[in-house]
Write a protein that binds this DNA or RNA. Sequence first.
DNA 1: CCTGTTTGTGCAGTAACTGTACAAAGCTAC
DNA 2: GTAGCTTTGTACAGTTACTGCACAAACAGG
Lengths: 393, 393
Amino acid sequence: MVAVAQEPALSQLVRNLHLLGGSASRAELTELLGCRRSVMGYLLGELTDRGLIAIDRTGGQAATTDGGRPSHRVLVADTAPTVVAAQLSADTVTAARVGLGGHMSGRVERTLPGGAVTDTVDTLCELINEVAGGVPNLLGIGVAVPSPVRRSDGYAPAALHLGWPAVPLGDLMRERLSEHTVSLGNDANLAALAEYRHGAGRGAAQLVYLATAHVGLGGAVVSEGRLFLGARGYAIEPGHITVDVAGQPCPCGSTGCLEIEVDHRGLLRAAGRSGVALEAITSVVAELMAAAAAGEPTAVAAVEQVGRHLGTGLATLVNITDADRIVLGGTLGGLYRLRPDIVADQVGTRSFLVGAGAIPIMPGELPDGELLGAAELALQPLLDNPKQVLTTR
Amino acid sequence: MVAVAQEPALSQLVRNLHLLGGSASRAELTELLGCRRSVMGYLLGELTDRGLIAIDRTGGQAATTDGGRPSHRVLVADTAPTVVAAQLSADTVTAARVGLGGHMSGRVERTLPGGAVTDTVDTLCELINEVAGGVPNLLGIGVAVPSPVRRSDGYAPAALHLGWPAVPLGDLMRERLSEHTVSLGNDANLAALAEYRHGAGRGAAQLVYLATAHVGLGGAVVSEGRLFLGARGYAIEPGHITVDVAGQPCPCGSTGCLEIEVDHRGLLRAAGRSGVALEAITSVVAELMAAAAAGEPTAVAAVEQVGRHLGTGLATLVNITDADRIVLGGTLGGLYRLRPDIVADQVGTRSFLVGAGAIPIMPGELPDGELLGAAELALQPLLDNPKQVLTTR
DNA sequence: CCTGTTTGTGCAGTAACTGTACAAAGCTAC
DNA sequence: GTAGCTTTGTACAGTTACTGCACAAACAGG
């Protein structure tokens, strides 16, 4: 209903190369951009001059040569800029290097000792500095955070699941990493972005993503290729969608909220195992999922109940967003794999205007989606405006 | 969190002129585009050559001359293309001519006789042909429809409030208006777009719009300047957000849905006046609102109850969209004017991360928002790509 | 080695701006 | 009324980012 203006060809080219994993044949790219071969020559020349790409002319292993001249291979060059991605979760911090194309290397993980906010930020930034050390052409640092994050500056107004008050997380990190550009994003948002670009969400016009991690529930929408962030960056808090009016009371004052019914504690409660200590939740949930997969009746019943509630919540999100793809991350992906029928049935019967089965539901494909998404965030300037980022020569 | 590529200057210029009502000083436009005066000269030359604008050099009534040379006035030319906007509602059809800048002329309205779908479409298209007759440079026809509309082709999967089955409305209209480009959109979406561009939603990053018309409830979101349509165009059906778990049963199977509680029938029910005939609803609601304004207790109580439910529903929408502006159209705007405190309180206390009063709520400013929005839809190609639309010379 | 197919390249050309220097138009003060 | 100031429009010579065409290169099959 509302069209868009065409975007600069160079940016399109870099984005396509990135989405193809950093390697593509020249002919393939020409096809995707819909431009002449001479234009591609000009564009590749620009990028080669700036050290972003290298071209392999040997055409040795050209897959499909229909009798014609084999196409050159376009690769991300060694001299191309790289980013460092980091993830903060309830009990660990992770960091890795990621280049254009989305390939991750040097991944390190560390257990959080707990303690004050500044201690955690210190640990996180130390890990980042370790990974960033010696990286020659570091474009920036992207960080995935398990709390709402203000888009303008990375302020975290309420990191509930970390037990934190409002924290100017962006400022704290920039103080400690002052020589680099630091961008922060909510972990569910970033995982959704990663799935959209490199995983189960590829090609969706309107992607709804939902995931459970350690505690709580995160969600995101990628709409026409862009994260739906809202005015401040706090959009899509799916936790308090009502899925069962006769359900559990929620601290928010309502009952049967999606978060309460389908997060890890909700799943354990459904299996009659309330009161598991926070530290043990991840492993107990893993056991429960294994038991359900093995057919243990209590576990199966819990999965079924949570699956129904999940489907109900998804239907509400589908009605609001008119999604054409649903991706489930974390434990929700495993849960869906066990009983796809229950989730799909709820979505089909409760969403208006959409026939049952019309919306593909799939588990997330990326084990490190949050981390990869954080890299996407840091790579964004390169994708949007390659010329500006790659200072000439 | 995700930046955008800059758009072509010519398109930006046309859009700015449109948003300024079709008349602006040259200096003002230069300031808005952030370009040099010479660039503005080039751009205006292009548009003048193509007959879109005219320049008034007399500078007679220059408002602010700080001692310098007064700026020329840029106006939409008589030779500029025009569109015809039409609106289909439950009991009437309306049409008018609209030009760049959003000025409406030749508005005509006709009562619908009822009858089969094709009769209604006939009446609508006859009215459009009347208004379109003799228009010299007709760019296209935009139509606002009180039902979901598929963005790809204008198919209406369920025009519930018209009592219609699924109808290929776009095809039916294009058959009858084959010489023109016809675009269809949902009326709430289009009213929201109009309020965003010309009314109470100006400047919002994330606008939530909600309105009641004859029967039912419509909603829309304008996100970063663009309508949030979803994959097919069916996004933001706000009618079935739960606002009162102990509320009225809804045909959808749930209870206390937003639509059931706050649409015209809900308002009348709250005032103890169920069972008003469909034809009389509009006038009886008007009476009720007048009585509430005059302080009549039953009417006031009804307004208060509906206001609370409205606020609850808005809070849910705010939590999902992270809005920074709420515009209420139709009767909801009047209701808000009567008791702004009740609505604002509910929104403030029930939306996470946002302090009370942080989100400006305002009644719609445009009495013919749907119609104006339909014009926006038809004008869109001109705004997006002026060069392509204005065939040279 | 010739043919057919597909692909890369050199180069001249163009659309869409951009920057600078300068002229024009108004107001104010003398 | 004209000099001085401010702000604004204009002419014109670049520059950037492509675009189209003609041609050469690389491979497969006969």
